[in-house]
């Protein structure tokens, strides 16, 4: 393992986030905080409890998950897309490093950034809404696995995209809507029976539910179903990345 190379890519990506601290860190924290203010404190005060917790507390795990998913995807996709766009990818592809090391550098940095953001938003949420975390280790595990999995997805998108439009396509038109409809703001018990069944086809339901379970000990689906889903996501993402490097898809003609 060429750790020096992995460290170099990792630190370069992390310093890119720091260079653009307003866009990378402050902006998602502010926008998520606004959700807490509007839905948690303002509107939430007029909504009764959901699944035994206040509405403000109920939406905390979902909002953290929403931010985590979108940030993981956009950071990782931009991280690999930009060198492709600028042409400087030649240096990475001609360096004496393996594909695994390239992935570790880029995806590791994107996941770290999302993880840090997730913890910052968690701390910020606590300023607006009182809540407790019943299973902090499970919560951390979910946070890490989700950040990793969706950073891998972002990496795949960054390689697939051949322009800025496609780069934004999946985070804006797939990840965000599915997360919104995946129980971020409501329990699926609140939906009519037909839509409850349809919602179960949305993979985000399992991620949001599992994460919420680590906070309050209850979720829309069983914790094991959530755990299976995140591991399955991770497995599929790893398989696709492996295929990309084996075939040289959009990287090595």
């Amino acid at each position: 393992m060429n750790l020096q190379s992995v460290k170099t890519i990792y630190l370069a990506e992390m310093s890119r986030s720091l260079r653009t601290v307003l866009q990378s860190i402050v902006s998602p924290v502010v926008s998520t905080s606004l959700y807490f203010v509007v839905f948690g404190a303002a509107i939430g005060s007029r909504i009764s409890e959901v699944d035994g917790v206040s509405y403000g507390a109920f939406i905390v795990p979902g909002l953290i998950m929403l931010m985590l998913l979108t940030q993981s995807v956009s950071t990782a996709s931009f991280g690999i897309f930009f060198p492709r766009f600028s042409g400087s990818i030649y240096e990475i592809l001609s360096a004496p490093i393996s594909y695994l090391e390239i992935v570790l550098g880029f995806v590791g940095a994107a996941a770290t950034k999302s993880l840090i953001l997730g913890l910052i938003v968690l701390g910020t949420a606590r300023l607006f809404v009182p809540f407790t975390i019943q299973y902090p280790l499970v919560m951390l595990l979910f946070l890490v696995l989700t950040a990793l999995t969706f950073s891998l997805l972002g990496f795949i998108i960054g390689i697939w995209a051949d322009g800025f439009e496609k780069l934004q396509l999946v985070p804006l038109l797939v990840v965000t809507p599915l997360t919104f409809l995946g129980g971020t703001f409501y329990s699926i018990d609140m939906l009519p029976p037909f839509w409850q069944t349809v919602t179960l086809l949305n993979p985000m339901v399992y991620l949001v539910s599992g994460f919420r379970w680590s906070f309050y000990g209850s979720g829309d689906v069983s914790i094991w179903a959530s755990a299976f889903m995140i591991v399955a996501f991770l497995g599929v993402s790893l398989a696709v990345v492996n295929w990309i490097f084996k075939t040289g898809y959009r990287l090595k003609p």
């Binding site: 190379s5 170099t8 890519i9 260079r19 600028s86 042409g87 400087s88 030649y90 360096a95």
Partner: peptide, 24 residues
């Protein structure tokens, strides 16, 4: 390379140091 392929926002020092680290 033939094309001027640089990451525009990094400094000269950082980009040259990056290349060294990238090669282990």
């Amino acid at each position: 390379p033939q094309e001027l392929t640089n990451e525009a926002f990094t400094t000269v020092w950082d980009t040259v140091s990056f290349s060294r680290g990238l090669f282990g």
